[in-house]
Design a protein around this nucleic acid. Structure first.
Lengths: 135, 135
DNA sequence: TTGGGCACTTACCAAAAGGTGCATACTTGT
DNA sequence: ACAAGTATGCACCTTTTGGTAAGTGCCCAA
């Protein structure tokens, strides 16, 4: 890994640290991913696309992403509410940076799956951190 | 973003999801980063290199990374304990995938800094999630 | 002998992050 | 008339995460 990080940054350990803090949140990377697919942009669609997200969480994360300038929210102010979300250029570039992680995940699916099998095997995650899930 | 994710995976939403679950943990990406730099590999050095990590956390994360096969721990069984950590090939490849994130962070440092300034400005993080830090 | 470093471990706690469920206000389908 | 869908808001509660502080065993230097 070439050093794209170390240039001592104001507040962050390095560039990686900064990025991670921006995408911190259980659903943000996934939201970025779905939006990057040019896929569903309406709230409801997004909601259905991401299995297991609660309204509270999805909305909260979307708000933060919007406030952080990664996503642009458009409210059509129509009668049955209509709102959609899209990536801003900044969000678009972040999504690009996430691609290698997607790739790594799929390419190493076998290993990753084994990893989780092991984690689960050690008595309901007994060998791991106190508690239980990328903050 | 080309679709390196969607191939419906067993347990994960997509490859990105899988990867994120592996590196989930406040210090894992950073550890991977430091080890990838060929930098400090002995426990104590690592500890000092990463400002603000507590023993408990560093050890815990190293244990998990080791158990997950991303890091290899070598105990020299010497008298004043000597142990060092190194990336396995799998860990190495993950570290590679993290590079774009490092780059994104440094390249967009200005925007990212603004983002955090805004977050902090809204009354001790008032406009954000309940509480305060990537889970 | 006192102090320090090494690599960890353990117990106890605070905070953060996320989940559930209910509510809104209006419309369209049955 | 009633259920359902739309995009959120809010209160409350649990789980998860991470921090602090103290301790362990052993060796070396002052």
């Amino acid at each position: 890994m070439s050093d794209t990080c170390t240039p001592t940054l104001p507040g962050f350990t390095c560039g990686l640290d900064a990025t991670l803090r921006v995408i911190a949140g259980k659903w943000k990377p996934l939201i970025l991913y779905f939006l990057a697919q040019g896929g569903p942009t309406r709230y409801g669609e997004l909601r259905r696309a991401m299995r297991d997200v609660s309204d509270k969480m999805l909305i909260q994360q979307l708000k933060e992403l919007t406030a952080d300038g990664l996503v642009k929210r458009t409210d059509y102010r129509e009668v049955p509410p209509r709102v959609d979300y899209a990536l801003t250029p900044l969000g678009e570039s972040l999504a690009q940076a996430l691609v290698p992680l997607c790739t790594w995940g799929t390419e190493n699916l076998v290993e990753v799956t084994r990893v989780f099998a092991r984690r689960a095997a050690s008595g309901i995650d007994g060998a791991r951190s106190p508690g239980g899930a990328l903050r």
